[in-house]
Simulated scan of single mutants.
Amino acid sequence: MTIREAEAQWQGSLKEGSGRLRLGSGVFEGAYSFPSRFENGPGTNPEELIAAAHAGCFSMALSAILGREGHTPAHIHTIAKAHLGASAAGPTLTRIELETEASVAGLAAADFERLAQTAKESCLVSRALAGVGVITLSARLIETATDH
């Protein structure tokens, strides 16, 4: 079993305090605060990191699924938008929108959309975020020359 780790440090009150988030690999460390999380202040926030994880996981899942179908993508670009809203329990991720485009030779648009949907449903992070009310997907195949 693989274990991934990250850490957070927080100092001070909720609204006036600040903290730092650090990935266990050390490749990212950044500041976060009430304004960076609930307003548009500088720094990162947990929801942005969730969106990054979702975009990365989805892109890899889509590449794997395309490969199983005999297609190697030239590139896949995915944006994940995590919507932070309110619920009776408090602040809540209410929606995640995945937008992806890929360049894949010799693949029909309808087949790409079907495979992208499969990737959305099977991606590890999508499954981990099943408690989020809605996860949408917009998939666009970029026209490429067919294989000869």
Rank of each mutant, 00 (worst) to 15 (best):
P42Q: 15
A64I: 12
G43Y: 04
S25G: 14
A53D: 07
F34A: 08
A52S: 15
L23C: 03
S33L: 11
A53F: 06
A53S: 15
G24M: 03
N45T: 06
P35I: 04
A55M: 08
E29L: 09
H54Q: 10
A55Q: 05
A53C: 11
L49P: 03
A64H: 08
G41Q: 06
E39P: 01
E47N: 01
E39V: 07
S36I: 06
E48R: 09
H54S: 08
M60I: 09
S33Q: 08
G24C: 04
A52G: 13
A51Y: 08
G56I: 00
A61P: 00
E39Q: 14
I50F: 15
P35Q: 07
H54D: 09
L62H: 01
G30Q: 12
L49F: 10
M60K: 05
F58C: 13
I50L: 15
F58H: 10
T44F: 07
P35T: 08
N40Q: 14
A55P: 06
E47I: 00
G24T: 07
G56R: 00
E47S: 04
F38E: 13
E47L: 01
E48G: 07
G56N: 01
R22F: 01
F58Q: 12
R37L: 13
L23M: 07
A64L: 10
F34G: 02
H54W: 02
N45E: 06
T44K: 12
F28M: 11
S33M: 11
H54Y: 10
E48Y: 09
G56P: 00
A55S: 15
H54L: 09
E29H: 04
L23Y: 05
L21F: 15
N40Y: 10
N45Q: 03
C57N: 00
G41V: 03
H54A: 09
F38T: 14
I50M: 13
M60S: 14
V27M: 08
Y32D: 03
N45G: 07
I50A: 10
E29T: 15
G41R: 06
E39C: 02
T44A: 11
F38N: 14
E47W: 01
S63M: 02
Y32S: 05
S25A: 12
C57F: 01
V27N: 13
A52Y: 02
S25D: 14
F34D: 03
A55K: 05
A52E: 11
N45R: 02
G56C: 00
L62M: 02
N40E: 12
E29Q: 14
A53K: 08
E29P: 07
G24F: 04
S59C: 06
P35N: 12
A52V: 12
L23S: 15
R22P: 00
S25Y: 04
F38R: 11
L49V: 12
